[in-house]
């Protein structure tokens, strides 16, 4: 029997290595006199917003019949403001109040720039993934079409997109196409991301279809089914199962690539991070937080796809 590695020992080694990395990061930040201020970060994710109630007129605070505090206008009894629903009331019965004075404050939790950026990144990625799949499947099918116009169009699309940097494509979509067609930032961002990812998905779909045994197409055709029906009912369902792992990789890439749209002033997670850095002067904490949030997004996606793989694998 071949010698197997000692599970306990090598798991321990793994743990020690992790620990060393952590210590290394801590030490290196110490060596550059960096002061960690993690406490500054949470408020940029969620913060407690103050919602003040100020007097709109000069008046006196009184208690009404139902026991609520009210501010009554000194010059006009019928004008009253009921003070209710506030967690922090600053006035008492009988107080004299002038216009603009603080009466009460309530607090509510609001999403900070990083949370808003995260939502924008999720929205951008989800919409782009849908269009990228559409584009990718259509051009993947066109790539294997017997029609030369469709096939060459697909080859041209894939080669042009794969041969140019995404950043340049975003600029072209936003400044050229966006100006001609009057696209807003979000649409331009979605367009650039889905066109870019669609080209890679097209190649994945093509490879998936070509990996299915030629006999499957022949069997479908020999039963009198059209090429389209055979693709739809026989080839694509089998190909889909095979391309799921590379497709998942492409979706993860899309989420990460979406950080580049911050160059056209879309406030996604990355741009929110940059803005937070300029107001906190805590670049380390912010970028670690942003990285962790990206990791959570891509991790969830990996998990979902792995579940799908298991589900489809179980069926055959």
């Amino acid at each position: 029997m071949e010698k197997q590695p000692n599970q306990v020992l090598w798991n321990l080694v793994f743990g020690v290595l992790l620990l060393l990395m952590g210590v290394g990061i801590y030490k290196s930040s110490q060596s550059i006199d960096y002061i960690w201020r993690w406490e500054r970060i949470p408020q940029y994710v969620f913060y407690k917003a103050e919602n003040p109630l100020r007097a709109e007129f000069d008046g006196t605070v009184a208690t009404n019949d139902s026991g609520q505090l009210v501010l009554v206008n000194d010059f006009n009894d019928s004008e009253q403001t009921v003070i209710k629903g506030f967690s922090d009331v600053q006035v008492y019965d009988g107080d004299l109040v002038f216009e603009g004075d603080l009466l009460a404050v309530s607090y509510e939790w609001k999403a900070g720039p990083i949370a808003n950026g995260l939502v924008m990144t999720i929205k951008l990625s989800l919409v782009s993934i849908v269009f990228a799949i559409l584009l990718g499947v259509i051009s993947g099918l066109a790539r294997i079409s017997p029609n030369p116009a469709l096939r060459n169009l697909s080859i041209l699309y894939v080669e042009v997109i794969r041969g140019t940097p995404l950043l340049v494509q975003i600029f072209i979509v936003y400044f050229f196409i966006g100006t001609v067609l009057h696209l807003d930032r979000f649409t331009a961002g979605v367009a650039a991301l889905s066109i870019f990812t669609g080209a890679y998905i097209a190649e994945i779909i093509r490879a998936g279809i070509e990996s299915i045994n030629k006999g499957q197409m022949e069997a479908g055709r020999s039963l009198g089914m059209s090429r389209g029906d055979t693709l739809r009912y026989i080839i694509l369902p089998q190909a889909f199962k095979r391309v799921l792992p590379p497709l998942a990789g492409q979706f993860i890439n899309l989420i990460k690539d979406s950080s580049l749209v911050s160059v056209i002033s879309l406030t996604d997670l990355t741009k929110a991070g940059r803005e937070t850095v300029s107001s906190t002067f805590s670049p380390f904490e912010v970028w670690f937080t942003v990285a962790a949030l990206y990791l959570v997004l891509t991790g969830i996606l990996s998990y979902v796809v792995r579940r799908m793989e298991v589900k489809y694998a179980a069926r055959s």
């Binding site: 039963l223 029906d229 089998q238 055959s316």
Partner: peptide, 25 residues
């Protein structure tokens, strides 16, 4: 036509293998 390598559709049950073409064609 019957092929040397069967060419059944592996993602469909035996019943669906047989029913697919009559239904679609």
């Amino acid at each position: 036509m019957v092929f040397q390598s069967f060419n059944l559709f592996p993602h469909l049950s035996v019943l669906d293998n047989i029913c697919l073409a009559p239904m679609k064609v």
